[in-house]
Design a protein around this nucleic acid. Structure first.
Lengths: 321, 321
DNA sequence: TTGTAGGCGTTATCAG
DNA sequence: CTGATAACGCCTACAA
């Protein structure tokens, strides 16, 4: 392993001069600097991150914590994060699972972005107390070292629900997300609140977990009880896709017998027949904003919690009654 | 930041005793060890990864390099890698993009698993020359510090092609993958080779890039020229899904007018109507094997290149002619 | 059984 | 402008 010591020896200068030269410190002549850079390249020198971290107390790496590595959902989000970070000379790593939590306290990463309900808030607060900077995308958490960038779930759920009402639907199913999910809780609550203002509308809640199979289950349940056209608000698109798949194996038609609206506007919705109505927001912007907030925290700037706005995407999955 | 020094002071012992105690070195009494552990917990001590890495010359972190963060495809693979690594007390981070390549030479990670055609082989070989251990999943690369774990693309393509032939198809389209892809090249070659043994069979190659939109394009092209039932081998499932979506907007039916077989057996194929015939292999096993090989390399064991076997999954997307 | 001390590769503070 | 030198936090001979 070649270190600045080796370069110093070969160049006939001291290690400090090498260090200055490599870091572009103006203390050293442009001439010797150039000479040192040449030698460094010759020797294939690469700085040692551990040594630098140890000294500078930062790694310039940010960790994003996800529940699982699957999920086509994450692509845009991570892209948004990455672009902002790279721009600020930070690097990004994606982690999952309890084992990798250590990256934060052990200072392998300088900060964390959390989209993992399983990463519990108490643990996060402990890290925040120790001075680690964190941005959460999946919960409310108040701490000077923590910033929130949350979806405007309530607005989204309201838009979706009102869309169904406007189209004349009076019998509405809501397919819920998993118990622990902040997003699901918010969406459900806002949807119910909207529906409660329409006493004539009947609504039924069905359990779900944000996975395709839950959508299939819900579809089966609804179709088994089918008497007349109904509307369904799946609290995410993934379940809506499962719903579609189940319905496709029956004689019923989406947008005719069963009207459905989702949430997230995942890429796949473009390909569904008929197009799934859903709630859209920019995943990339979400990620980018989260990254920006984290960098501000790291720089000691004060930041306000942020909200990601959402819009309704209409589609033929919802017809008029 | 609390270090072993602080613990030593509070415990009235030397730093080395603390270090021994924390690392379970039998040199220290069980009694003092216990006392030190209590104090460490009290002070909320967490070891500093940079210092440890610097000294031990290892981080116990493995990096997986992917082309992009999206792709539902990667879930199982990463899960397989993660399980093996965690079992061996290694941690996993997922990286993407040129900026993160530095993690290897700077020794932030102890080794790398590559599934990213854009990470060019020359650069990889440089790292291998410097002693870094690498497992590649997407190319052939011969070097003592590099191990390959490749899919048996040829067997898969042969199985898929022969399946179409057995079902009586005599007019076959092959929708190709992107130019740079090793997998695509192998699959195409094996498929052609199989078809060449059947001079009566007509086959046409269509360009593609492994994305859904390419499948749609191919479907459009084939349907525009449609005269009689045809068969299609999409070199991956993603394109097959795009193909399905396009066909769904026409009056043609998969498995009746157009027969189609894919490759990868991604989760979504279960939900297609009719079920997509495809080539299956265990993504999890692939990842697990890659991780095992990498660990062996890191331990200085010699390893043979490995191959992941594949099987045919039949489906109603292919009918008899 | 415990303590002392040197060093891992860098950075940064001093003098020179 | 350049060079010694002392950290950073941890590990590990070797000495006591």
């Amino acid at each position: 392993m070649v270190s600045i010591k080796d370069i110093a020896k070969k160049a006939g200068v001291s290690v400090s001069t090498v260090s200055y030269a490599l870091n572009g410190n103006p203390k050293v002549t442009e001439e010797t600097r150039a000479r040192i850079l040449v030698i460094a390249k010759e020797l294939n020198y690469v700085p040692n991150a551990a040594a630098r971290s140890l000294k500078k107390k930062e790694s310039r790496i940010i960790g994003v914590f996800l529940t699982e590595f699957s999920g086509a959902f994450y692509g845009g989000l991570l892209q948004g994060i990455k672009e902002v970070l790279n721009d600020k000379e930070y690097d990004l790593v994606v982690c999952s699972g309890k084992e990798s939590h250590r990256m934060l306290p052990e200072r392998i990463i300088d900060g964390a972005i959390i989209l993992d309900e399983q990463f519990n808030s108490e643990e996060l607060l402990q890290y925040a107390d120790r001075g680690h900077k964190i941005v959460v995308l999946d919960r409310e958490l108040s701490h000077p070292n923590v910033n929130q960038v949350l979806l405007d779930n309530k607005a989204g759920a309201m838009l979706a629900t009102e869309y169904l009402l406007e189209q004349g639907h009076r019998r509405i199913y809501i397919v819920n997300g998993p118990k622990g999910s902040y997003d699901a809780r918010q969406r459900l609550q806002a949807s119910k609140q909207t529906l409660d203002r329409h006493p004539k509308v009947e609504y039924i809640e069905i359990e779900g977990d944000f996975n395709k199979s839950a959508g299939e289950q819900a579809a089966k349940q609804i179709i088994d009880a089918y008497t007349e056209p109904v509307a369904v608000f799946c609290l995410n698109d993934e379940m809506a896709i499962g719903f579609y798949n189940y319905v496709a194996s029956t004689e019923y038609r989406i947008g005719e017998h069963i009207h459905i609206v989702g949430f997230d506007n995942i890429e796949l919705t473009e390909y569904t027949q008929p197009r799934l109505a859903t709630i859209n927001y920019s995943k990339k912007k979400w990620g980018a904003l989260a990254a920006e907030q984290l960098i501000k925290l790291l720089q000691g700037e004060s930041v306000e919690n942020e909200r990601i706005y959402v819009t309704l995407v209409t589609g033929n999955s919802v017809g008029r009654v």
